[in-house]
Amino acid sequence: MNRRDFIAAGAAAFGASLLGGPAFAQSLPPRLQPAFVSLRAPLPAGEIHVFPDHFQLFWTMPDNKAWRYGIRVGRAGLYEPGDYYIGAKKEWPSWTPTPDMIRREPEKYARHKNGMPGGPNNPLGARALYLFEEGRGDTFLRIHGTPDVNTIGRAVSNGCAGLTNEHIKMLYEQVPMNARTVLYPKMV
């Protein structure tokens, strides 16, 4: 953790103690704000579980507890349910649109075909957890940050699960390499 992240985490914790949650998250409804919760059904500790219809991600803990985060998910036809594992973790990752993204929306993505360096305006945000699959390797799906808080609670991405930049920093610190990650099918 670098000095800037340490100071930001301290400020967020101070804001949380005064306001009942970080100031940046006050615009999110309570069900999309980070919370330490009891699970309704038991899940193994040390796993990520994404429930797309509820726009929620759970990082499971012992004793049927979990950290819950509000997320955005892939729009129709782009969300890919499955059983994955964290194959890479990156801070302020660079980003390159996939060929499919460029084909679908060349006006938006073609200019970035050679990539974009990490930074505050990068679509992967402050942190990214890279989803891998046995026998396939990197799936090009990510759990990552976004500076656009207004997208949380919506199906708007190209298949990835996104958290606010501040929330992905919190999750990133908790999740180890190779952690199992389950993206459940959309029911609606």
Score class of each variant (00 low, 15 high):
Arg4His: 13
Arg4Lys: 13
Arg4Glu: 15
Asp5Asn: 12
Phe6Tyr: 11
Gly10Met: 12
Gly15Cys: 06
Ala16Phe: 03
Ala16Thr: 10
Leu18Phe: 09
Gly20Phe: 05
Gln26Asn: 08
Pro30Leu: 05
Pro34Lys: 06
Ala35Glu: 11
Phe36Thr: 09
Arg40Leu: 09
Ala41Gly: 08
Ala45Val: 09
Gly46Leu: 03
Glu47Gln: 14
Ile48Cys: 10
His49Gly: 07
Val50Glu: 00
Phe51Ala: 02
Phe55Asn: 13
Gln56Thr: 12
Phe58Met: 03
Thr60His: 11
Asp63Lys: 04
Arg72Met: 13
Ala76Arg: 13
Gly77Asn: 09
Leu78Glu: 05
Tyr79Ala: 02
Pro81Glu: 13
Tyr85Gln: 00
Tyr85Phe: 15
Gly87Ala: 06
Lys89Cys: 03
Lys89Ile: 01
Trp92Ile: 00
Trp95Ser: 00
Thr96Asn: 01
Thr96Ala: 01
Thr98Cys: 09
Pro99Lys: 06
Asp100Leu: 07
Ile102Ala: 05
Lys108Val: 15
His112Met: 04
His112Lys: 02
His112Arg: 02
Gly115Gln: 04
Met116Cys: 07
Gly119His: 05
Pro120Trp: 06
Pro120Tyr: 06
Asn121Tyr: 05
Pro123Trp: 05
Arg127Cys: 09
Leu131Gly: 10
Leu131Gln: 11
Phe132Pro: 02
Arg136Ile: 11
Gly137Trp: 06
Arg142His: 11
Ile143Thr: 10
Pro147Tyr: 06
Ser157Pro: 12
Ser157Thr: 14
Gly159Gln: 07
Cys160Asp: 14
Leu163Pro: 01
His167Trp: 08
Lys169Asn: 15
Lys169Glu: 15
Met170Tyr: 07
Tyr172Lys: 03
Pro176Leu: 12
Pro176Asn: 11
Met177Asp: 13
Met177Glu: 14
Asn178Arg: 07
Arg180His: 15
Thr181Ala: 15
